[in-house]
Simulated assay, not measured.
Amino acid sequence: MLTAHFWPLFQESTVVAQEVVPYETHEFTFAEIVAATDYFGPHTVIESARSVYKGRLRDGRVVAVKRITDRQSDSTKRKFHSELDILPQLRHKHIVRLLGSCVTATKDKRLLTNPQQKKKRLLSWWRKEQQEPEWLTVYEYTENGTLFHHLHPDQGSSELSSVTVPWKTRIDVLLGVSRAIEHMHCHANPPIIHRDINTQNILLDANWVPHVSGFGLSLVCDKAMSEEFEMTCPVVGTIGYIDPEYMTRGHVKLTSDVYALGIMMLEVLTGRKVIQEDEQGAIYLKSFAVPVIEAGNIRGLLDTRPVPEPTPGQLRALEHVAQTAR
């Protein structure tokens, strides 16, 4: 079980079971999503590369909408269907909440279901667009973006956040992510392998609570879960976080996610990117951090940005996190 890797640093699996949050998903009409995002206006764009928009539903809920069109790749469409299959099985407080979806090949039919006063405006807008199939997913909105953004702000930025300042928040984020992974591995039936645990897939809400996202590459374990469970499949994921055994042999296991979490723990402790370039080439975080940890120089490992000096108690906790990551 995942807890075997983290005990006593992380709490028992009974806590994870208590953090399950039941909710229902909804099939949205295209018209509802268009109205919520103000016709996918440029001012609603959250992430242009992934076609993610901010919206507000009629009941007042703020949401994030991911939009996939027929022009996008087959792999992108497969990720859409993977999330639709997997996320409804994972209703944990530290896993992003899928509120619903919309799949439409003929959007004019969807538009006709809207109230009469909106129909003319929507149809006028739609005639200006290329008529093609679309796949849309609607998620809860997380106000504070990704963990990656806070650890690695844009060059020249002096931005500090509640993630980069207090050490306690950094460790709380890791605890939340670990519980989400334990839920996927030990409480979901069948178990789920995420395959792309990284800081860009950790979303932070208004209270800096972490939510694991990015389930487009995830796999369902269709056999009884054990430490020996593995599958042979094409290698996918984010370079730097991928389990070396999976990278070289194509064998992915539940522990592949544990490896990625270990890399993320080093990233949170050091504030360094997983791969950095210098004159000699690529420097992998693991190659830098593990020798420092093994030498017992935990202070030499920690992020040097302006954060409060850790107290003796915090330093002991950070050393425990570092040893667990190693």
Rank of each mutant, 00 (worst) to 15 (best):
Lys93Met: 04
Val307Ala: 13
Ile192Thr: 06
Glu129Asn: 14
Ala260Met: 04
His187Gln: 10
Phe148Asn: 14
Leu254Tyr: 11
Glu182Ser: 15
Gln11Phe: 05
His251Trp: 00
Thr69Ser: 15
Glu143Thr: 13
Thr104Arg: 02
Ala49Ser: 13
Arg71Thr: 05
Tyr246Ala: 01
Gly100His: 00
Tyr23Gln: 08
Leu87Asn: 07
Arg97Gln: 09
Leu111Gly: 01
Leu315Met: 14
Ile298Ala: 11
Val15Asp: 04
Asp278Trp: 03
Glu182Gly: 14
Arg91Glu: 01
Leu90Val: 11
Ser75Trp: 05
Lys93Cys: 07
Thr232Ile: 03
Ala105Lys: 03
Cys233Leu: 09
Ser178His: 01
Pro133Val: 02
Val138Glu: 08
Ala4Glu: 12
Arg50Leu: 11
Ala295Lys: 09
Arg179Ser: 12
Ser75Asp: 13
Trp135Tyr: 10
Lys109Met: 00
Leu98Ile: 12
Asn297Gln: 06
Glu277Gln: 13
Ile181Gly: 04
Lys223Glu: 07
Asp108Gln: 10
Arg67His: 15
Gly41Ile: 08
Pro8Leu: 03
Leu302Asp: 01
Asp222Gly: 01
Thr142Met: 10
Arg170Gln: 15
Gln280His: 14
Phe6Gln: 05
Leu112Asn: 05
Arg67Trp: 15
Glu143Asp: 15
Arg56Trp: 07
Glu132Cys: 03
Thr270Met: 05
Lys118Asp: 15
Glu143Tyr: 08
Val138Lys: 09
Thr270Arg: 04
Thr270His: 07
Ala260Phe: 02
Tyr53Lys: 06
Tyr139Trp: 13
Met184Gln: 11
Leu174Val: 04
Glu27Asp: 07
Pro153Ala: 02
Met231Leu: 15
Asp243Ala: 08
Ser124Ala: 14
Ser226Asp: 13
Lys107His: 10
Glu19Thr: 04
Ser162Arg: 04
Arg299Thr: 10
Val62His: 05
Ile242Ser: 04
Thr104Cys: 05
Leu174Cys: 09
Pro234His: 08
Gln276His: 04
Arg305His: 10
Val16Lys: 02
Trp208Tyr: 13
Glu319Ala: 15
Val177Ser: 02
His152Lys: 00
Ile171Cys: 13
Tyr139His: 15
Leu151Phe: 10
Phe40Asn: 02
Ser226Ala: 03
Gly55Leu: 02
Leu9His: 04
Tyr259Asp: 02
His43Tyr: 08
Thr76Glu: 14
Cys221Phe: 10
Glu182Asp: 14
Arg272Cys: 13
Ile298Asp: 06
Val173His: 06
Gly214His: 07
Thr14Val: 14
Leu175Gly: 11
Val63Ala: 09
Gln131Thr: 09
Glu309Tyr: 02
Tyr246Thr: 00
Arg61Val: 12
Cys233Phe: 02
Lys223Leu: 01
Thr25Gly: 09
Val45Arg: 07
Lys118Glu: 15
Val34Asn: 05
Asn198Tyr: 02
Thr104Trp: 01
Thr255Ile: 00
Phe28Asn: 10
Val45Asn: 00
Val103His: 01
Ile197Met: 09
Leu203Arg: 11
Ser158Met: 09
Ser73Asp: 12
Arg179Ala: 11
Arg299Leu: 15
Leu160Val: 14
Glu19Ile: 07
Asp303Met: 01
Ser226Asn: 06
Gly216His: 02
Leu301Arg: 03
Arg91Gln: 14
Ala105Tyr: 00
Phe40Met: 11
Pro190Ser: 13
Ile33Arg: 12
Asp108Leu: 04
Arg249Ser: 15
Met1Gly: 10
Leu204Met: 09
Gly60Ala: 12
Glu277Asp: 01
Ala224Ile: 07
